[in-house]
Simulated assay, not measured.
Amino acid sequence: MHDQNVDPAPPRRRGLVVLLGVAGAALAVAVGLSIGLAMPVLTAPSDDSSDVGFARDMSTHHAQAVEMSMLGVRQAGLEEVRRMALDMGLTQQAQIGTMRAWLKQWNVPPTGTGPRMAWMRDGGMSHDADMADQPAEDAPMPGMATEAEMARLGTLSGAQFDALFCDLMIRHHAGGIEMVDAVLRTDPEDEVRELAEAIKVGQQSEINALTQLKSRLSEQ
């Protein structure tokens, strides 16, 4: 008489089934991870996309604001200007780091071979008319200070510095918002949209604060 409770599968067979099950589960996890890791590469913006152009050009745009801000920390007359300058510089330097990380993740170089701001021209910006007569490599960036303006800012201190700093940074931020609006019209990647919207909110708030400060300075 046979014992009905005896497992019909020999121990070695059961072990093989378990081993195959574990191996199959591990393979599924590995495949899932591979797909997950590959997706950012497979869906990354192309080198000539507005996402990549924005990341490159806004990094350059931000770099000048950081330079102006560091001058403000050292040369501003009012403590309020120094505090604002420090906050702007730290914020925009952090954003530069984020955008450079994107470019690395997207496997594109930090600088392109095409003309600057081409992604904005393709978007039909009003800025295009001013850029039409410019050599591609010299295409202006919205709101940027000229070399002469930066040199002059570097020679000033106190109230004179504060006044010019407000003027240049208000214009600079307005140009940055123009670039943000341009990329937002192109249905960018989620991370680009989120940062662009944050830049717009932050810089519009700073424009308001700088405008009020400039008004007070003119009354002194």
Rank of each mutant, 00 (worst) to 15 (best):
residue 117 M to Y: 04
residue 75 Q to Y: 10
residue 34 S to F: 14
residue 91 T to E: 10
residue 83 R to S: 13
residue 71 L to S: 12
residue 82 R to F: 07
residue 32 G to F: 04
residue 182 A to K: 01
residue 84 M to E: 03
residue 103 L to Q: 08
residue 76 A to G: 14
residue 81 V to W: 01
residue 158 G to F: 08
residue 190 D to Y: 05
residue 186 T to W: 00
residue 194 E to P: 00
residue 218 S to I: 10
residue 42 L to G: 08
residue 1 M to C: 10
residue 74 R to G: 10
residue 105 Q to M: 08
residue 94 A to W: 00
residue 67 E to C: 02
residue 140 P to Y: 01
residue 191 E to P: 01
residue 66 V to E: 06
residue 56 R to I: 03
residue 166 C to L: 09
residue 24 G to H: 08
residue 142 P to M: 09
residue 194 E to I: 11
residue 48 D to G: 08
residue 210 L to D: 05
residue 184 L to A: 03
residue 159 A to V: 14
residue 34 S to Y: 11
residue 20 L to P: 05
residue 20 L to I: 15
residue 119 W to G: 04
residue 202 G to S: 15
residue 215 S to W: 05
residue 196 A to L: 03
residue 11 P to V: 08
residue 82 R to T: 13
residue 98 T to G: 01
residue 183 V to I: 10
residue 67 E to R: 08
residue 180 V to D: 05
residue 129 A to C: 02
residue 86 L to S: 12
residue 157 S to F: 00
residue 27 L to T: 15
residue 193 R to T: 14
residue 10 P to F: 05
residue 31 V to L: 13
residue 44 A to E: 05
residue 144 M to R: 09
residue 162 D to F: 00
residue 79 E to I: 13
residue 103 L to R: 06
residue 139 A to P: 04
residue 194 E to A: 12
residue 136 A to Q: 07
residue 113 T to G: 04
residue 118 A to R: 09
residue 171 R to N: 14
residue 156 L to N: 01
residue 72 G to Y: 02
residue 19 L to M: 11
residue 196 A to P: 02
residue 25 A to H: 06
residue 27 L to Q: 06
residue 27 L to N: 01
residue 213 L to F: 15
residue 68 M to F: 12
residue 168 L to W: 01
residue 9 A to Y: 10
residue 102 W to V: 06
residue 161 F to V: 06
residue 58 M to S: 05
residue 140 P to C: 02
residue 176 G to R: 03
residue 50 S to E: 03
residue 169 M to N: 06
residue 168 L to D: 01
residue 176 G to M: 03
residue 205 S to A: 14
residue 151 A to L: 03
residue 172 H to A: 00
residue 160 Q to Y: 01
residue 210 L to N: 05
residue 88 M to I: 15
residue 46 S to M: 00
residue 60 T to D: 09
residue 218 S to A: 15
residue 164 L to G: 06
residue 7 D to G: 11
